[in-house]
């Protein structure tokens, strides 16, 4: 019985992680789009983005730990940390490990952003666009519940939500309201050609 609890937890936490991670990605894109209204100020978008991201890691940890300690799966810690080192479903588990490690990098660099500077943080944050699809493929490839109707619905909704947000973002172009003013100021203090 205790074994099946671990197994159910792994599956449940995996599904929850997918939902949370997709919400975090959507919120991140919306914050870049500067979406707001009277009842939804922008700090709400960024605050949710941040807090849900931290929660994602908690569920992801639960997903991984329960999978590893489950005596039935017999995965071992190495398989959870080293990509493609697992004998069991090498490719699909490897993708999961990669997605997990990218997310850890993204969260850790965000927590110490003040020390890193904006440029480095931003470069690492772009990895989100690798971590999310790799995670989705991991779920599709090895999920026990992948082809059940409810899990298909969840996956489809997540993919649709992220896809829509990204499409909106690509369509919007530059959303920075400071860009014209910054350009004007910069042209007054830029001496790169003169030197």
């Amino acid at each position: 019985m205790s074994n099946s609890i671990l197994w159910y937890t792994t599956r449940g936490a995996g599904a929850v992680t997918l939902i949370l991670l997709s919400s975090v990605v959507v919120l991140g894109v919306l914050s870049a789009l500067r979406v707001q209204s009277d009842s939804w100020p922008r700090f709400l978008t960024t605050g949710l983005h941040r807090n849900l991201a931290l929660m994602t890691l908690v569920f992801l940890a639960l997903h991984i730990v329960t999978a590893v300690v489950d005596p039935f799966t017999n995965l071992g810690w190495a398989a959870a940390l080293i990509p493609f080192s697992s004998g069991y479903r090498t490719l699909w588990l490897g993708l999961g490990v990669i997605s997990f490690e990218l997310l850890v990098a993204i969260v850790v660099t965000s927590l110490v952003r003040g020390m890193l500077g904006h440029r480095v943080w931003r470069a690492v944050h772009w990895l989100t666009y690798a971590a999310w699809p790799v995670g989705v493929v991991h779920g599709l490839g090895t999920g026990t519940d992948t082809w059940s109707a409810w899990m298909l619905a969840i996956t489809a909704a997540c993919v649709a939500a992220v896809g829509m947000a990204v499409a909106l973002r690509l369509n919007a172009g530059s959303t920075d309201p400071l860009a014209p003013a910054r350009g004007e100021f910069r042209s007054a203090v830029d001496r790169r050609e003169a030197r």
Partner: peptide, 19 residues
Amino acid sequence: AAVIHFLNDGVATPVNIPP
């Protein structure tokens, strides 16, 4: 910070500190 930015990149605007 603007002095450093200018001497390195030719643009005299302040940048994030640290470093």
